[in-house]
């Protein structure tokens, strides 16, 4: 049953078997994707034709490795830029929202807080289309009435950033709020009492206290943005992000090039995940 209680042999081994299968289920698609990135075949599948690094480094007519594939490299670059912009902006906005709802008192606080949670339960597709529609309406309005053409209101890099921010900020807000709730306001008072000014209190006490939450929320925000598809799809201009570009390639047939990109993504995100988890583990001990 649990560690301290006895249970039968069948139950124990049956349970172990189930959990083992679960982990196999969890990892098999990722493992196979990684393995096939090194298969010397023009098609991502078995049989194994021998080891090759062509899908990373080749620059031939029929085999282009990731590092020579301009289409995917530029998509990767767009995705990175988007993710950096979104995670920084969401971090600022989400943290401000956390402070607003944790430390300030004002009328209509409860309904506004409720509103700020909704982006997480609105399907991403709907966020995407409604922001697309609203920016289009606004763009038409500005053009008709004032004759000005506002770049940002057309599907473009910054519209994608705004669209992703709209729900990633809520996520940041929840993570930062959770830590802020545990913050003892007496620490701020202690600092004031020892002669610190208010900006010094924020810089020396509050922000360092929130640091683990900010790092954690920031890196998850980065990934959420980097991987976002549903919202991005509708807001994207001519610069395609990596998930959208990959989707188009996967839909129209695939080469081991995609495995190679997937391999790079898997390895780098796993590393990022591990660093992040280990860091949060360390902060838990403190």
């Amino acid at each position: 049953m649990i560690r301290s209680l006895p249970s039968g042999k069948t139950y124990r081994y049956g349970y172990l078997l189930y959990v083992s299968f679960f982990y196999l289920f969890l990892f098999s698609p990722l493992l196979i994707t990684c393995v096939l990135a090194f298969n010397d075949s023009n098609f991502p599948g078995l049989p194994w034709e021998g080891f090759t690094l062509d899908w990373f480094f080749a620059d031939e007519q029929y085999r282009t490795g990731v590092f020579h594939d301009d289409r995917n490299l530029s998509a990767l670059w767009v995705s990175l830029q988007t993710a950096i912009a979104v995670s920084l902006l969401s971090l600022i906005l989400g943290t401000m929202a956390a402070f607003l709802f944790e430390q300030e008192r004002f009328p209509f606080k409860q309904p506004l807080f409720f509103l700020s949670l909704t982006p997480l339960v609105i399907p991403g597709v709907i966020l995407g289309i409604s922001i697309l529609l609203a920016s289009n309406t606004a763009g038409l309005y500005f053009e008709e009435h004032w004759g000005i053409d506002i770049e940002i209101l057309r599907p473009s890099f910054w519209l994608v950033v705004l669209g992703q921010m709209s729900f990633i900020s809520t996520f940041v807000m929840l993570v930062v709020s959770a830590r802020l709730k545990k913050f003892d306001p007496a620490l701020e008072e202690a600092a004031l009492n020892l002669g610190a000014t208010r900006p010094e209190v924020i810089r020396l006490i509050t922000i360092p206290y929130l640091k683990p939450a900010l790092i954690g929320a920031g890196s998850v925000a980065f990934l959420m943005s980097f991987e976002n598809f549903n919202t991005t799809l509708f807001l994207i201009g001519s610069d395609t992000t990596l998930p959208v570009s990959l989707y188009l390639q996967v839909r129209d047939g695939s080469t081991p090039l995609i495995n190679a990109i997937a391999f790079i993504l898997i390895v780098s995100t796993s590393l990022l995940a591990l660093i992040n988890l280990l860091a949060s583990q360390r902060h838990k001990d403190e």
Partner: peptide, 8 residues
Amino acid sequence: SELVRIYG
């Protein structure tokens, strides 16, 4: 990324 997992 979800796309990579589906691709797998």
